[in-house]
Design a protein around this nucleic acid. Structure first.
Lengths: 356, 356
DNA sequence: ATGAAAGCGCTAACAT
DNA sequence: ATGTTAGCGCTTTCAT
């Protein structure tokens, strides 16, 4: 029913008494149409409720004005759904439509299937918003030539030859930990996310960086491994740390959900945050300001990553179309921001006032 | 160079020494191809890395195997991003691709623009996952004939003549409030969401239903109006209630984020939940079990709404294609589920044990 | 079992 | 300023 019987350009042409080519000119705002014809055609178009067929246009032109977004369903549980929002908005305002593909198991590789779909749709370019997990980027290294269209990777290790837009996770981890150090804490633990995620590893490196700046060489027992991105991981991780690292004064958690789990452990054990241990999270979830206590965290310009990536993709597409030489692939890195709240009050203030 | 130079069906035909129609038959698993030809063609296809052009296929066929999802960007802040996931997964496993459109201002009507895009793309059907706010459904009532393709509305008031998939928000509100009543609470407040959202109004009606079952006629001051969906609304709302309704024993909040804000107020005023007031939320966010105290709430089969809607849409599309009579539009309603946690412990238990 | 021809709706190139 | 022609890549009759 959808394709059948829809008004076509020929109907408009017949009804307006012009050729279909002239109608095409009107639709596409080409010059060289007399005002009289223009008005006549436009009148017929709106009277008949004509809508040009993007599929036919796509077939005949060299550009599809269509871009593919691949994301993992994980993205939609947390704040990262906003990345897709950023991409979609920027795409739309540049005249692109988007098609969305979701990976259910981003660790493994149903990659090929999804890319084949994008190729079949003849998208102009791809935003690969799937987190880098384990070896799930390897397909691209081996098959990049097959793809033959611009692709931007989000939140990926910036390999040479790839276009990457990402926040600086390592810097974020460093800032978070330095904040704790500056507030007087020295025994600082880390609750890890899944170790096969690149972003999780980077955040841990940032934690290490900060500690070594202060001449501290972290021991294994300061890290709670085997984590997830969810509160249950924070709960288990905090319990581990309290047991294996009893002198702990503060903890940096791989994201805010994990921090929430760590907060829960305090209430279970009758401990207080930040008096018994301070916490800094990562992501700045909307609700982090409402945790008890409110959570110090690293702000993540998550929707900006999406819009920036799309803008960059548009540039690459334009360059290919015009045959211009493309600037070599590179990495765009956004900088995270520390948001200070109650969960990391300076040690001295706590000592002095004894206040929450 | 997405379209240029891609291998076409003719290339495969030439290389295999058959006609392009035969290749087409192979691609589409039609019978009447000799085994020998089949194998030959398949070999050439994989050797040359050929991927059929979905755009060309779409143009010539009566179906696009493409569906449009419209959502508001609000959806992606909260749990409702999962609706889109549900739609996408179900669509994919039925051979559909999806194109995603986002409304930035779901209250107003950029509706027409988005629908025109879907029409231009010649989608087979539409999932309208935009919340019903104010009068933003009116376009459909006035223009349904224009659309001429199946459309499923999510989380909408089930008007006759519309296909709707929704959870029963009113029932959810009732269950939540009945739970509080059964646990011995009688002075039960309500923190409203945005009153122009249909879902928010339904949840309030559920609260009223439950109260009147117990012979209670709620007063105006039991409701905190002017809410948002976010914790700040819960904070303001709870403060209002404590001031204007001091005998309050319990509160039902329009969603879990609001509940989080209401929890925050307790800690600010030195009150305890559930001892000073019990709380029940709505949505069952992943992290609700980790709030302090853990939050009793209404579980929302949010991804099921999406997949069910997509399945229903597929049925409608098939019916239109085969020219069969379509079952009249109607409403599919999913039932919410009470999840009991600490924030609503029975009054008696609290009295007896004095425990959190 | 396979091929030839027509056409989906549109735009680009070349007339006029 | 407007029309004619050809063709994008594929599927669908209809032949053979």
């Amino acid at each position: 029913m959808n394709l059948r019987k829809r008004i076509t350009i020929k109907d408009i042409a017949r009804e307006s008494g012009v050729s279909s080519e002239t109608v095409s000119r009107v639709i596409n705002n080409h010059p060289d149409v007399s005002l009289k014809t223009l008005e006549k055609v436009q009148e017929v178009i709106s009277r008949l409720g004509y809508s040009p067929n993007a599929v036919a246009r796509r077939l005949v032109q060299k550009r599809s004005h269509f871009i593919g977004i691949a994301a993992s369903i994980y993205e939609f549980q947390g704040p990262s759904g906003m990345t897709v929002v950023g991409v979609q908005q920027e795409a739309n305002s540049n005249g692109y439509s988007v098609t969305l593909q979701l990976l259910h198991h981003p660790e493994t590789t149903e990659v090929e299937e999804i890319l084949n779909n994008f190729i079949a749709e003849r998208v102009d370019g791809i935003i690969w918003a799937v987190p880098e997990i384990g070896n799930n980027r390897s397909w691209f290294k081996d098959n990049q030539s097959k793809l033959r269209m611009p692709i931007i990777f989000l939140n990926t290790k910036p390999y040479p030859g790839l276009n990457v837009v990402s926040i600086d996770n390592r810097q974020g981890g460093r800032i978070a930990t330095e904040h704790l150090l500056q507030n007087g804490y020295r025994n600082i633990g880390f609750i890890a996310g899944p170790e096969d995620w690149w972003e999780a590893r980077e955040r841990r490196l940032g934690w290490q960086d900060a500690l070594s700046t202060y001449g501290i060489l972290p021991e294994e027992r300061q890290i709670a491994k085997g984590g997830t991105w969810m509160p249950d991981g924070g709960e288990r991780g905090m319990q581990m740390l309290l047991d294996q690292y009893p002198e702990i004064e503060a903890v940096f958690t791989c994201n805010d959900y994990i921090a929430l789990g760590a907060l829960k452990v305090a209430s279970q054990r009758g401990l207080y945050v930040p008096q018994d241990y301070a916490i800094v999270g990562f992501d700045n979830l909307l609700e982090a300001a409402y945790y008890l206590p409110s959570l110090t965290t690293i702000h993540h310009p998550i929707s900006d990553v999406g819009s920036l990536a799309m803008r960059e993709l548009g540039r690459l597409i334009d360059a290919e179309q015009s045959g211009k030489s493309i600037s070599p692939p590179g990495a765009i890195t956004l900088h995270p921001l520390l948001i200070v709240r109650e969960s990391s009050l300076p040690k001295t203030i706590i000592k002095t006032t004894g206040v929450v």
